[in-house]
Design a binder for these strands. Structure first.
Lengths: 338, 338
DNA sequence: TTGTATGCGTTATCAG
DNA sequence: CTGATAACGCATACAA
């Protein structure tokens, strides 16, 4: 393996001078610099991070801990945001997922520690409260899409589910809908409660009575093994004599079943019933016809900003606190004015 | 930072003895071992991988290079398979994605090299041929879901699209369907051609004429910016006087549009028309009602086996060659016998 | 069964 | 501006 010393020999300088060139330090003649750079190119020298770390105790590496990657294709964008930030800032990403096991999680923290990573991004695939199982390990951490359940005060960055649902509700109201159905997400998800609250409060502020709202549970049970009532519930809701003119769905995925339920009853979208989703999971929202009006969860930005936040924690630049990022309403064609 | 030497001092032994305990080497008294282990616990000592690597030049780390993670939620399972293997075998995973830029890819290879990783898993989100842009970097590599375009002969592991489509076609044929529609995937995807070939040949072997087959293009154009004709094509196909009794879809995602097209025409599934997908992208295949019969792409196993394969390349145990993994037919309720 | 000495590829110190 | 040398945390060879 070609090391800094071989380069030094080839360039006829000392190892320290090579080190200076590599790290862009001052006090090197332009001529020396060029000679060293040539030697580096010729020999195909690539610095050894491990050796660097052992001296400088800064690994320039962030770790990502996720819970379930596979079962939720939605939030992979968080990871992409992190990776883009890392790429733009010369950081390396170590990645591991717990699969929900806290034993495995403890091992991951140790593994991260053994690599002397600079910071951890703790990412959950659904927004929820969690308790990182770091054991004795102490590494600067930023939580993305989740927040600590108890004592420990870790900075976090989350989507603004409330504002997203509020925007969606106002949108429906603004288009004249006065009878609105709501099919709820799994209540164990933090976003579920916030979205429902926003829906209820916004409708009430607008003067709708609770009886104008038809609120039903679409899913429940543990993540990954939930019971799914969406199709049945949507069918019932749409068979009511005084059926809603619009249905708001807990998320885009559930909307597939609402579409199918409506169509099976011979109802057209949006002529007979308007539908809005949540998440902007494009695999679904663009595949549905008419395409789905929904609120986009800012997953990519969560990752990007989370990494940036972690970096400022690590370098001690700012005192970081918890943040919330807005959801953006994406207007397509699944809603009509009444 | 607590090092092996602090542990040695605390336990009243030499650094080498501590090293023996850590690495589970023989020739340590049970009593000494216990004393060392206690010191390790007390001090919260965690080995420094960087220091270990610098001596042993085996990083126990694999790198994953992906192209597009975000736009394709489908194949995240590959990554999960890799991570599970890594976890079970004490390896660490370094991850980076190119976003399609070969400049960035070259940087990633260098970054991997600078971390002295043992091997690279080159993963694409769609099955296709690619040319790794490794530059001068030489690291053992296994390709997952793709194969090298040119000269270089890298071991690869891919799903058996042909067999999957063959099984699906036989399934339809076995259920009495004799007029079958096929809506094609984007032709730039390797799987698209294979699936179509399998469909055509299997139907021909069974005695169907080309005129019994209604084959239409569902999508085309560059990945991430493709044109989507599925809804229109499905609608046309189902309006034909002599319409197919079953439609085979390029993938599950496209099936959403086929369902909606059928239902908008007042057709019931599967009574009036049977539908099969491909991929078993469960977000879709389980959300559709009736639930979708489809062929499951073995993504998780691709990751698991790919990592295993890479490991045998790295350790030089086997001479690895290219492999193909079967797709599994998942029977649900979207097909009826005619 | 245990310990000592040396070296891995860097960066840091300090002297030139 | 440049270089000699120490030091980082660990593993390896060899000695005891």
């Amino acid at each position: 393996m070609v090391s800094i010393i071989s380069v030094a020999k080839a360039a006829g300088v000392s190892n320290k001078t090579v080190s200076r060139v590599i790290n862009g330090e001052p006090y090197v003649t332009e001529e020396t610099r060029e000679r060293v750079e040539k030697a580096i190119r010729d020999l195909g020298y690539i610095p050894n991070m491990a050796a660097r770390l052992i001296r400088s105790s800064r690994s320039n590496t962030f770790g990502i801990i996720t819970d379930y990657v596979s079962t939720t294709p939605y939030s992979v964008d968080i990871v992409r945001g992190i990776q883009d930030w890392a790429n733009a800032n010369g950081k390396t990403i170590l990645m591991a997922n717990t699969g929900g096991s806290s034993k495995r999680e403890a091992e991951i923290w140790k593994m991260f520690q053994s690599h002397r990573i600079d910071g951890v991004l703790y990412v959950t695939m659904y927004r929820r409260t969690v308790d990182p199982q770091a054991g004795d390990v102490r590494i600067p951490t930023v939580m993305i899409n989740c927040r600590p359940q108890t004592h420990e005060l870790l900075p976090s960055i989350e989507p603004d589910d409330y504002q997203g649902a509020q925007d969606l509700t106002r949108y429906l109201l603004g288009r004249g809908h006065r009878k609105i159905g709501y099919i709820r997400l799994n209540p164990i998800l933090l976003g579920a409660q916030l979205r429902l609250d926003a829906f209820r409060k916004t409708a009430a502020e607008f003067g709708l009575a609770e009886s104008d709202l038809s609120i039903r549970l679409g899913m429940e049970g543990p993540v990954g093994a939930e019971k799914n009532y969406v199709f049945a519930v949507a069918t019932e809701m749409l068979q009511q004599k005084d059926r809603p003119t619009a249905i708001m769905s807990g998320n885009d995925e559930m909307t597939i079943q609402i579409y199918i339920a409506a169509m099976a009853l011979g109802l057209r979208i949006p002529e007979d019933v308007s539908i809005v989703g949540f998440d902007d999971f494009r695999t679904v929202s663009l595949a549905l016809k008419p395409e789905l009006t929904t609120a986009a969860l800012p997953y990519y930005d969560l990752g990007l900003e989370g990494a940036e936040l972690l970096n400022s924690v690590v370098t001690g630049n700012k005192v970081p606190s918890s943040r919330v990022m807005p959801c953006k309403l994406v207007e397509r064609t699944s809603v009509r004015s009444v």
